[in-house]
Structures are given as structure tokens and as C-alpha cells.
Design a protein around this nucleic acid. Sequence first.
DNA 1: GCTAATGTTATCGC
DNA 2: GGCGATAACATTAG
Length: 243
Amino acid sequence: MPEGPSILILKEKVQQFIGEKVIAATCNNDTLDTEILTDQTITAFKSWGKHFLICFPQFTIRIHMMMFGTYRINSHTEKPPRLHLQFEDGELNFYACLLQLIEEPLDKVYDWSADVMNPEWDTKKAIKKMKALPNLLACDALMDQQLFSGVGNIIKNEVLFRSRIHPESLIAAMPSKKVKEMINETIRYSFEFLQQKKKGTLKRHWQAYHKKECPRNHVPFIRKDTGKSRRASFYCELCQVKY
DNA sequence: GCTAATGTTATCGC
DNA sequence: GGCGATAACATTAG
């Protein structure tokens, strides 16, 4: 279900529960002791990349949707939710996700400047981190959640196509101007993704992801599992330069 | 009915 | 112990 932008949409949709007290909570496996949630009041919803964070006064619940995670707000499906939060007036349900209790302060756990959609995003820091990885490929860099938290396979493919970079390019071989261009496009496209996802027009505007041919010169796209993660890349050998 | 897919973590073998 | 490769998990549109 989610790359970073989809988590921002979730965060927006649950704003009504801030300040609400959990009157009951359940978990359909034993990955979280939900007893600690009873009578606790939600102080905030936060996100770091693909992590969705439900904040309580003394701790935070981390939710990761993986590939197939879903949620329902003030409704539920026929299946028992992984996490169910019952409020006086409403309910929140999460399915097929990973749950984790965080007891440390979030600022100690998360580097907010690594989240491509966070206002604290830090391009210079990202470049510095990439320089420490001499064999890093562009496709792996974008998928690395420590470098570009929130980027998934869709954003990766669209960014590489739009900035005309071959997925198997060596970051260290790219001119610094090109690296910056890739980073700027990552931020820009992530927000475009957000707007289009909200409008329901996301798929319609894909230029590379799952596309058959290059919209620039109409040659067939190469589809190849690339990089350490071996995730599918869709790219044009004519216009995407391999550094 | 089968396949593939927006992802991460655990485990195995070297 | 560290590394990479592989398996495991879980959902649903097409």
C-alpha cells in the first residue's frame, strides 16, 4: 500500500483522533501488548518515511504497512484487525502491518532530516551519507530508507526517468550537479505523488513505472531487477545516462 | 485461479 | 561475526 506520501495522507485523515482517549484496544497477534493503550490519550500522529507513528504521553506505537497493509477509519473489514483502537466516538483499524512499541524519545530514534517529505530534509547530509558508500548505485540509493526515507519503487522509477539517470549508475561517478538534480526531483516528485494520489490520478501520470515504452522517444523500456534489493526498474537505454 | 506487486525482517550458508 | 542470498509474511487487483 504505502510509500511516504500515502502515509502523509493517512496522517491527515486521522487528525480527528488527536486528543481522543483510547477506551479499548486489541491486537490479533501477540506483537503488541494492547493493555498499555487503554485510557491513554493520543497526543499526536507523526511519520518518518513509511513509518506511521501514534504518539501517547509516555510512548509511541510504530506502524509499518509493508506491501499490503491497509487501514479503516470509523469502519472495519470482516477480518480481525492487527491493531484496533476504540474511541468514545469512532474507531481506527490497521491490517497486515507490523507493530512496534517505542519507549525512547522519537528524536533519539529518528533522523527527521532523512525523510524526503519532512520539512527538515537535508540534502547536504544525504550527499555526505552517499559519499561514504563508494559502490552505491542510484537505484539502491533511492531505495535506502536511511538515505531517502519514504521512497519506494514507484518514486524510484519515476525519479530516475525524470532526471534521466540509468538505475545502475554509480553515484560516485555522477557529477555533483546531477546528484543534486536527482535529490531535488525525489523531493519534488514525492509531493507530486501526494497530490496525484489525493486526486486519484496517480497511475495515470506514471511515465516509467510499469510502462512499456519511453514517452520521450518511443523505444521499449527495459525492465530489469536492479541493485541489491533486486526490485524492478523500468528504464530507457537511450535517454537515461549510465554514469 | 494465478500472478505480481507501493516492503521489511529473519534466517541460512559461506 | 559479517556478508549476501533467500525465505517468509500478507493482500488483492487484474
